[in-house]
């Protein structure tokens, strides 16, 4: 899917290298702040130091690689990614503010369908609502598993 590009500084690889170093640093800091020591053998910090070292090595590897090769991820439809993100965000917001599972899932359905190029909002809205309500009824009523409640859920 990816095609190698010309030599030169490859930005994404460099960013990943920096991210790996940052992660290694956080892990090392966290390990050195641990207070509870193991009475015998190794403490909980040993694994953290190991992983921090591992991450730092990988960061170094990426740093070298950033100057040697790079892949071009190809064209990206950021709008579509945005729509999916909006859908996921809506579900999180719906649960956060107590709008409930059905409203949240319906929005997720509609926005994701939009991301893939659908524009029939009303049809998708109806379909999403039916799907979400069906799931809710199945789980809450038949399997007594409580999905988050909101105004719509209280109607049942």
């Amino acid at each position: 899917m990816t095609t190698p590009t010309a030599r030169g500084l490859h930005r994404p690889t460099l960013v990943i290298a920096v991210a790996l170093f940052a992660l290694a640093f956080i892990t090392w800091r966290d390990a050195s702040a641990m207070q509870i020591r193991a009475t015998y053998g190794m403490g909980a910090d040993a694994a953290s130091y190991f992983v921090a070292l591992f991450l730092a090595l990988m960061g170094a590897g990426h740093l070298v690689a950033a100057f040697r090769w790079g892949d071009d991820p190809g064209p990206t439809d950021w709008k579509a990614v945005g729509w999916v993100a909006l859908g996921l965000g809506s579900l999180i917001a719906a649960l956060w503010f107590g709008a409930g599972f059905i409203i949240g899932s319906t929005l997720l359905f509609v926005f994701t369908a939009r991301a893939f190029g659908r524009r029939a909002w009303l049809a998708d809205l109806a379909l999403g609502l039916i799907l979400a309500t069906g799931i809710f009824l199945l789980f809450n009523k038949l399997l007594t598993l409580s999905l988050p409640m909101g105004p719509v859920e209280r109607l049942f």
Binding site: V84, G87, L88, L91, S105, L108, F109, V110, T112, A113, R114, A115, F116, G117, R118, D124, L127, G128, L131, A132, I135
Partner: peptide, 12 residues
């Protein structure tokens, strides 16, 4: 569109 919308709803 529906397939992935459905997958996301079920996964969440």
């Amino acid at each position: 569109p529906w397939l992935y919308a459905g997958i996301l709803v079920f996964a969440c």
